[in-house]
């Protein structure tokens, strides 16, 4: 772990943090805390192992700690709320906001798996080790998260016009 490799990971850490917490300043604070903790725990990092996964793991643990401290205010909304009506959309811009809003309504642990797959393109195994959960749990969170997001977005606005790119 050195400055160059850290610098190279920064944009990705910021992207993931932004997607996880939504707010720019809060997300950057999270990245900042991650770097601080990373430097403090440098001795625990095995050289040659995946630095990115290690840093994402640190960020994940920090986030878990934060949520634990903050109490019920920021608990992810439960099943019932996910059915809450969302405003109608008129334009692409609003549609993007809807995706962000729907994402924010996902339970934290499902959102994390979804984002590590979509943004980081981590393998399911990497996600399991980054989040410290079994592979089966990764799959069930991914499955539930994707389905819940689909239902939220589908509720009022079909996403089928987006092209599938394989």
């Amino acid at each position: 772990m050195d400055s160059r490799t850290i610098l190279a990971e920064l944009p990705r850490l910021r992207r993931y943090a932004r997607a996880m917490v939504g707010d720019r300043a809060v997300a950057d604070d999270l990245v900042q805390d991650t770097l601080e903790r990373g430097w403090l725990r440098l001795a625990q990092w095995r050289p040659g192992s995946d630095l990115r996964a290690w840093l994402f793991g640190i960020m994940h643990n920090l986030r878990v700690d934060q949520l634990r401290c903050q109490g019920p205010n920021t608990q992810p909304l439960g099943e019932a709320e996910s059915e809450a009506p969302m405003r109608a959309t008129q334009s692409d811009r609003l549609e993007v906001n809807d995706l962000a809003a729907a994402l924010a309504r996902l339970p934290e642990e499902q959102r994390a798996v979804l984002l590590l797959v979509a943004l980081e393109e981590m393998s399911y195994e990497q996600i399991a080790s980054t989040l410290g959960i079994p592979l089966g749990t990764v799959m069930s969170r991914l499955s539930r998260g994707r389905e819940r997001l689909r239902l939220m977005l589908d509720g009022h606005h079909p996403v089928a016009h987006l092209r599938v790119v394989r």
């Binding site: 932004r18 997607a19 993007v96």
Partner: peptide
């Protein structure tokens, strides 16, 4: 259903990839 999942994935990237280009 899978089509929608793929679309989600693409849309998430579109939404958050611009963060990569922001100045640090």
């Amino acid at each position: 259903r899978l089509f929608a999942y793929q679309a989600q994935k693409d849309a998430l990237r579109q939404l958050f990839n611009p963060v990569l280009d922001e100045s640090l």
